[in-house]
Design a protein around this nucleic acid. Sequence first.
DNA 1: CGGTTAGTTGAGCTGGATCAAGCGTAGTGG
DNA 2: CCACTACGCTTGATCCAGCTCAACTAACCG
Lengths: 239, 239
Amino acid sequence: MIEKHLLKLRARDTVSAEEEDFLRGLISETRDVAAKATIIRAEQVLGHSTMLLEGWMCRYKDLPNGQRQITALHVAGDFVDLHSFTLKRLDHSIMALTPCRIGMVPHRRLVEMSESHPHLTRLCWMTTNIDAAAHREWELSLGRRPAIGRIAHILCELRIRLALVGLTDGDGYPFPLTQLELSECTGLTPVHVNRTLRDLREREFVEIRHGRVRIRNLPALEAIADFNPTYLYLNKEPR
Amino acid sequence: MIEKHLLKLRARDTVSAEEEDFLRGLISETRDVAAKATIIRAEQVLGHSTMLLEGWMCRYKDLPNGQRQITALHVAGDFVDLHSFTLKRLDHSIMALTPCRIGMVPHRRLVEMSESHPHLTRLCWMTTNIDAAAHREWELSLGRRPAIGRIAHILCELRIRLALVGLTDGDGYPFPLTQLELSECTGLTPVHVNRTLRDLREREFVEIRHGRVRIRNLPALEAIADFNPTYLYLNKEPR
DNA sequence: CGGTTAGTTGAGCTGGATCAAGCGTAGTGG
DNA sequence: CCACTACGCTTGATCCAGCTCAACTAACCG
């Protein structure tokens, strides 16, 4: 059930068998949620965190005028709102982009973890810090990269993250976002996302068709994105 | 020495006398750094974290073409790179904006904290999660707010954060950033920052002069920024 | 008082926005 | 089985917020 999450953790540090057992015990219950459902609304007080077992989710913030910024994308294996454990309520909402299966982790059990499993606690803390690193990389995209770089960068990031949990295949990976949702990630309009995707397709860097990303020229894609994956912290070091 | 940091913590949760003592013991040494000095470079392996005792710092990411995005601003009392404790190296650089006094916190002592002080550990974890919340708010600014809103938003955020540690006075606060640095925070050009500041001044919302922000119409400033301070998590709740 | 850095302003340009229309395809219900 | 609808994608025409380039001013400092 938490196999994919374990793959993520073990790409960063070693996890003992005892710690693995403890992690399995964190999930009190699983649930299925429908595509496009907002499962957590900003400001709501929470007693549990959510681990994404299957499907895609996003976190987003709204502006009073109806505009929306997606601040993070999540795929299977991600501990979507582990940070709600320390914060108790969130500054953003969480939505399912596709039908999802989620695991509920009561904060009570995380308190126990922090009292009995310091190494595991540091590891979980680290995963929230890696999420923050992704936020910073997105700040860089939103602030300084042109449209084509922003989109290319997201596609490069997802390729690595999905490969880590075994969700890539051959020359690409499933990609369920609509162009509207992609525009909400990148701070662009849907129209401009459409034109930029055409540009990427005509250059033969990538194409998105039938809900799949097909990468046709990875070096060129990474170059135009100025992609440097070190912010994903995929070398084993801590402990 | 860590008085300002304690103010920040106690705005979010209670800190016992014993925990306060432990925190004081974290700092192994203090140092002075010059304005404009980059004290930590991206990718460098670190053995300590940095608490900012006096002055202003920022964290930034560079693009190969020389562009730069400042991803966070820090003022006295901020635990600037506590996250380097779990990450061991950073995806960004850290620079002093003014002359600063910093406290060095060896990671070794933070490991001890995680083993003996679970509540304090959760509290420190929370502060890194609050930093991430600020990143998300900046993503929203960069992705969706127009120039005037981005600048107004930063000025509103700093007003709250500086007030918390006693660094505001009367109708404003010290503000040492150049227009170039402000442009690197907001994803704009220095020229456009200049014009936007003139706009804010002519509307009589705020003005920046002689290294000070003077707020002349706070409600209007907050309105144009769509400012909602809940992302700063200033209500006491956790424990 | 000369050099350097920060701030200011004008003129013209452009990447991405806006507005508007049309198209393809997957339901859905009669 | 087909009309109808809804949603996502695509394209064209036009606009504008913010960028670029360039020059000038102000403040500080040694």
